[in-house]
Amino acid sequence: MRADHASYACGAALGFLGDLATGDPRRGHPVAAFGRAAAAVERRLWRDHRGSGALHTALCAGGAAAGAALLARTVRTLVGPSRAADAALTAATTWAVLGGTSLVREARAIGDALAAGDVDAARERLPHLCGRDPQALDERQIARAVVESVAENTSDAVVGALVWGAVAGVPGLVGFRAVNTLDAMVGHKSARYRRFGWAAARLDDAAGWPGARLTAVLATLAGPDPRGARRAWRADGGRHPSPNAGPVEASFAGALGVRLGGTLTYGGRVEHRPVLNPGGRPVTAADIPRAIRLSRRVAALALLTTVAARSGAPQGSGADQERVNR
């Protein structure tokens, strides 16, 4: 394994373990700081126009990736070629952009509330995990929302970032998280963001495409019913309105033997989504721990897969290759 690949592998593994051990801090998280900066830029640029939204997306996502590249270059300039420094920067960045432990923590809290029969507490906690309107949801609908969110965010909060880290190192990690955060902020179809958020949503679709497919593959391989996962993915993954959530949620549905999709409400807006794995049974609270275990297995396999893929690459890219050539 080449030196740059070895330092990336070490850093990515340490960052993954850091997220596993600590999760996201309640205050001072770098992603939250990026969100505040993006909101400030939005206040200056907002117009009900796609062009303004595209400029906002380019400045925020491009600026984050460029800033990460500049930071990596600055560290190398100050420290010199150093595997330890490269690994430390990769570890810190990986920890900052991954959200797997926070995802599991929120899902488990809702599952525990449902298991205790406290549906009101589960409703109160649900907005920490997803943007659905919780008040009209019964126990099974809450459980379904949690399983769908665990599936989708396994890709968004873990696998997608690891994929882009393997492709482009620290700038890839930061750039993906910036794009995904912008999509969460402005990429929905509300009256304010239908045009302004179009660019962020489309860029997130493109950036999330490889991670979503890897998530679906790994959920199929790691789940309790590989044949069911593969069948649901092939039959129903393309029916979802999101090109990336569809394969992920369908593969999780098939792997767990449950039925996902259907009617849901966001911000008072009712959506009727296709049912994924219609032959499955309705989701119950007992399926939340099963979805969490599958998410954990997929995340660990994604780390191994992406590190192996980067280690097998014939050449480093960008700043990695520059360092090797010196």
Rank of each mutant, 00 (worst) to 15 (best):
S82W: 05
L70C: 14
L78Y: 09
A58W: 00
G62A: 04
A54E: 03
L59S: 01
R76H: 12
A65Q: 05
V79M: 13
A85V: 09
G62W: 00
L59C: 06
L55R: 03
A64F: 01
G63Y: 02
G67R: 07
T74N: 09
V75Y: 06
T77I: 12
A58G: 13
A58S: 08
L59W: 04
L78T: 12
G80C: 11
L55G: 03
G80R: 13
A54D: 04
A72L: 13
L59R: 02
H56Y: 05
L71A: 14
G80N: 11
G62F: 00
D86H: 12
R76N: 10
L55A: 13
L71S: 08
T77F: 14
V79D: 07
A68T: 06
L59K: 01
V79F: 11
L70G: 15
G51S: 14
A61I: 04
G67N: 08
R83L: 13
R73G: 11
T57L: 09
A65K: 04
A66N: 06
A54W: 01
G63Q: 04
G67F: 05
A64K: 01
A54I: 05
T77P: 01
A64Q: 02
A68D: 06
S82P: 07
H56N: 03
T57Y: 02
V79S: 14
A72E: 15
A68K: 03
A65V: 04
L71E: 07
A65I: 04
R76L: 13
A54C: 10
L70A: 15
P81C: 10
L70N: 05
V79G: 08
L78K: 09
A69P: 06
G67I: 03
A66L: 14
G67A: 15
L78Q: 12
G67H: 07
G67T: 06
L78H: 08
L71C: 14
S52T: 09
A58C: 09
G51F: 14
G67S: 13
V75P: 04
T74H: 11
G53C: 05
S82Y: 06
T74R: 14
A64N: 05
G53D: 01
R83W: 11
P81Y: 11
A66F: 10
R83T: 08
A69D: 13
G80M: 12
T57V: 11
